Computed example of a mutant assay.
Amino acid sequence: MPTSSTPDSRPVAIGITVFRPDAAQVAALRARVAAETRRTIVFDNGGLPAEEAAHLTARGALVLSAGRNIGIGGALDAIAQAAIAAGAAQVLLLDQDAAFSPDQVSALEAALARLRGSSPPPAVVGPRPDAAPGRKAPDYPRRPKIPAAGSLVPVEFLATSGSLVDLAAYARIGPFRSDFFIDGVDLEWCFRAWAHGYGCWMETGTALPHRVGAGVIRSNLLGIEMPRQPLFRMAAYLRNSVYAWRLPHVPRRWRLRQAAYLPLQALLFWADAGYRPGVLAQLAGAVLDGLRGRLGPPRGLP
Results as ranks from 00 to 15, higher is better:
residue 229 Q to G: 00
residue 206 T to H: 07
residue 119 S to N: 13
residue 210 H to K: 05
residue 196 H to D: 11
residue 229 Q to W: 00
residue 245 W to P: 04
residue 161 S to H: 14
residue 202 M to T: 06
residue 211 R to L: 12
residue 167 L to C: 12
residue 142 R to P: 03
residue 217 I to H: 05
residue 136 K to N: 07
residue 207 A to M: 08
residue 113 A to F: 07
residue 163 S to R: 11
residue 205 G to V: 03
residue 172 R to E: 12
residue 110 A to R: 14
residue 186 D to C: 11
residue 233 R to W: 12
residue 159 A to R: 03
residue 233 R to D: 02
residue 146 I to Q: 13
residue 196 H to Q: 13
residue 232 F to A: 09
residue 192 R to Y: 06
residue 151 S to T: 15
residue 171 A to D: 11
residue 176 F to E: 06
residue 142 R to A: 14
residue 238 L to N: 02
residue 222 L to H: 12
residue 123 A to R: 06
residue 222 L to W: 12
residue 236 A to M: 04
residue 130 D to Q: 10
residue 133 P to Q: 10
residue 146 I to C: 09
residue 225 E to H: 10
residue 136 K to C: 12
residue 239 R to Q: 15
residue 144 P to S: 12
residue 216 V to E: 01
residue 158 L to W: 09
residue 175 P to I: 00
residue 107 A to H: 09
residue 142 R to D: 12
residue 155 V to P: 14
residue 211 R to H: 15
residue 145 K to P: 01
residue 146 I to G: 07
residue 189 W to H: 10
residue 181 F to T: 13
residue 240 N to S: 02
residue 174 G to V: 13
residue 122 P to W: 07
residue 244 A to H: 04
residue 222 L to P: 11
residue 183 D to F: 11
residue 246 R to M: 10
residue 185 V to T: 12
residue 232 F to D: 06
residue 230 P to R: 01
residue 210 H to D: 07
residue 235 A to E: 01
residue 176 F to Y: 15
residue 218 R to K: 04
residue 222 L to M: 15
residue 207 A to N: 10
residue 220 N to P: 06
residue 224 I to K: 00
residue 172 R to P: 02
residue 138 P to F: 04
residue 213 G to P: 07
residue 159 A to G: 15
residue 172 R to T: 12
residue 157 F to R: 09
residue 194 W to C: 09
residue 135 R to V: 04
residue 157 F to K: 08
residue 114 R to P: 06
residue 233 R to P: 00
residue 224 I to R: 03
residue 134 G to A: 06
residue 128 R to N: 11
residue 203 E to F: 08
residue 158 L to M: 14
residue 153 V to F: 05
residue 139 D to L: 10
residue 122 P to E: 00
residue 237 Y to L: 14
residue 167 L to M: 10
residue 111 A to K: 05
residue 125 V to H: 04
residue 213 G to E: 06
residue 157 F to N: 11
residue 163 S to C: 12
